[in-house]
């Protein structure tokens, strides 16, 4: 265990823990866009920056991204100085310039007193803030169907050659994790379309309700050794099935231990 000071309060933390986790555990609100617990921290959005110093640094201080900074004994952390306010505001201002239509960004910027971007807005902006959450989650899944393409300001997130990504299994993790809801998909009847690729959705054997994509189910079956038949029916029908099985047991035993 180590002791650190956050905004004047001494806090205990476990060695190896990241500052952001400790700060949030203390109930302090720090905005983030690229952070997600299912992902390794990346430090892309820079919103979680905090100021750190130590007594022996003699007044010298530096700014670090708390999502990536492991706690150290004796660290003195400030999370809401005026300089940090300015940093976060500027970052949101820059993001808003490139994605002026994003309601998520607009809302965050409002909290910093920013009603519109100070820069020339890119009216064709697609709201993508290049946090890599989508590509990172796809990598965690073991697929890496999409990736950052090009570099610098031209960078976009895209499938290889801008076409249907061969490795995509239509799980929608990328779309769900996207903080600015850029990645769109459609589910029509039993067909899911994402990244221009079409997927068959499994229809419940009993009621016909669509569940997950067949490719995703097959991937889970193969990767995690799950029985194939688990995926044949939808959750509603499976619950009814369970009730019936329990009922059958009741008729025998009158009492069932769940």
């Amino acid at each position: 265990m180590v002791n650190i000071t956050i905004n004047g309060k001494v806090v205990r933390a476990t060695e190896g823990e990241m500052l952001l986790d400790v700060i949030r555990r203390e109930g302090i609100n720090i905005p983030t866009l690229c952070q997600h617990d299912a992902l390794e921290p990346a430090g892309n959005c820079r919103l979680c920056m905090v100021e750190i110093t130590r007594t022996e640094w003699d007044g010298w201080k530096k700014y670090v991204t708390s999502c990536l900074y492991p706690v150290e004994e004796g660290l003195i952390v400030s999370t809401h100085t005026s300089e940090l306010h300015e940093i976060r505001k500027t970052i949101l201002d820059l993001l808003l310039a490139n994605s002026p239509h994003s309601d998520v960004l607009q809302k965050m910027a409002e909290e910093y007193g920013l009603h519109k971007t100070s820069y020339e807005p890119n009216l064709e902006g697609d709201n993508c803030i290049m946090c890599y959450a989508c590509t990172r989650i796809c990598e965690v899944l073991g697929k890496s169907a999409i990736s950052p393409v090009m570099r610098g300001h031209e960078k976009v997130i895209a499938p290889p050659f801008g076409e249907e990504p061969p490795d995509c299994i239509g799980c929608l993790a990328c779309a769900h994790i996207c903080p600015t809801n850029v990645i769109t998909w459609t589910d029509e009847n039993l067909t899911r379309t994402i990244w221009k690729k079409k997927f068959e959705l499994i229809a419940c054997e009993k009621c016909g309700k669509a569940t997950i994509s067949r490719d995703f189910a097959e991937y889970l079956i193969e990767k995690r050794g799950l029985p194939k038949e688990y995926f044949n029916t939808c959750d509603d029908c499976k619950r009814v099935e369970l009730a019936q099985k329990m009922g059958a047991l009741v008729d025998k035993a009158k009492e069932v231990a769940l």
Binding site: S147, M150, P159, P160, F161, D167
Partner: peptide, 12 residues
């Protein structure tokens, strides 16, 4: 290597 990573490097 996933194709996306090959493509990513080719454009980077």
């Amino acid at each position: 290597v996933p194709l996306s990573k090959v493509y990513s490097a080719s454009t980077f």
